[in-house]
């Protein structure tokens, strides 16, 4: 695998400012199986998506950040301290685990209050009600969690994790089981927390979730950090993969013939949508297309990039 400039031991922090989360050459293995392999990155306030297919090591990474696993090698720091064997750090960490299990016999409010009390909050009842309101669970808060739907359960877990207003919020597959409306509400909530200076890291294998919330992403593949940083920036760095651009014009056939002669163009294909072009150098191509169309006497109506979606980026990184 080729290292992109942002990965590896020398990785730069994604954002400037104090780092809430820092990993230095972290690895974790179980016997002979390596779950996380030499991962380094730093995170400041904001929402960051942790992406990767199943088995990439996302949960292992989050568990290390939450202090529930010791790294086999390297150093994990949350707010400057190692979270393993240090319960005090949980004052500043909120964790939403992936497993759906909750205390089914508690009502939603009781569950959130349980979290508030164990956090030692002075006004536990008030904080619990507030957290319930933030996730929009007021109507169901007096019902046992056992009767909740998946999405409601997920929201109860989130309420329990943010009841003490932690500096760092870790969420493992938080959008699982939520309907689209709840998803948007949850994403808004995470966005608000990020604006208030909180550091939020959530894992997902569903890309549209990530695309909407955070432009910051970490991509894990087979235990290694495959990419980190701004999503669009990462896309631009992937120079060895041809970009697919579709152009609509007054005369697609003529335009195709004109583009064929250009050395930056790999292939041209006529589709019902227009003229589809593959190129390696996006910047150069954008500059030359205006001149090419002028000389061919074709008027361009629309240029769009087909594979700027995260799905494509992801597919690309995973396949490599």
């Amino acid at each position: 695998m080729q290292a992109t400039p942002l990965t590896g031991p020398a990785a730069a922090p994604i954002e400037a400012g104090p780092l809430a989360i820092e990993l230095r050459n972290v690895a974790r293995w179980y016997g002979n199986v390596v779950a996380v392999n030499d991962v380094s990155f730093g995170l400041g306030p904001g929402v960051t998506g942790l992406l990767g297919p199943n088995g990439a090591g996302k949960t292992t990474l989050l568990h290390m950040l939450a202090g529930f696993l010791a790294p086999s090698a390297g150093e994990v720091l949350v707010l400057g301290r190692s979270p393993h064997r240090d319960p005090g750090v949980y004052r500043q960490i909120g964790l939403v685990p992936e497993r759906e299990a909750v205390y089914a016999f508690l009502t939603g409010l009781e569950y959130v209050r349980f979290n508030a009390r164990l956090q030692g909050l002075r006004d536990a009842d008030g904080a619990a009600l507030d957290a319930i309101r933030r996730v929009g669970l007021e109507d169901a808060m007096d019902r046992p969690i056992g009767t909740y739907s998946k999405g409601m359960r997920q929201r109860a877990k989130v309420a329990g994790a943010l009841v003490h207003d932690p500096q760092v919020l870790l969420l493992d597959e938080p959008f699982n089981g939520m309907d689209p409306r709840q998803r948007i509400a949850m994403m808004d909530l995470l966005g608000q927390m990020a604006e208030a200076g909180r550091t939020i890291l959530f894992s997902s294998h569903i890309l549209e979730e990530v695309e909407r919330v955070g432009t910051q992403i970490l991509v894990m593949v087979a235990g290694r950090l495959a990419a980190s940083g701004d999503f669009h920036a990462i896309r631009a760095l992937m120079t060895d993969r041809p970009h697919m651009i579709t152009i609509r014009s007054s005369d697609d056939r003529k335009l195709a013939a004109a583009l064929m002669t250009n050395p930056a163009v790999f292939a041209v294909e006529l589709t019902p949508d227009g003229c589809s072009v593959q190129t390696a150098q996006l910047g150069a191509f954008r500059r030359l297309i205006a001149g090419a169309s002028r000389t061919a006497g074709v008027r361009i109506t629309e240029v769009f990039s087909e594979d700027e979606s995260l799905e494509k980026v992801f597919e690309y990184l995973v396949r490599r």
Binding site: P87, P97, A101, F114
Partner: peptide
């Protein structure tokens, strides 16, 4: 077994 131990342990409570 159920995984609820996480909620108990992710708290600033001495073990």
């Amino acid at each position: 077994d159920d995984g609820t131990i996480v909620y108990l342990l992710a708290k600033p409570v001495p073990r």
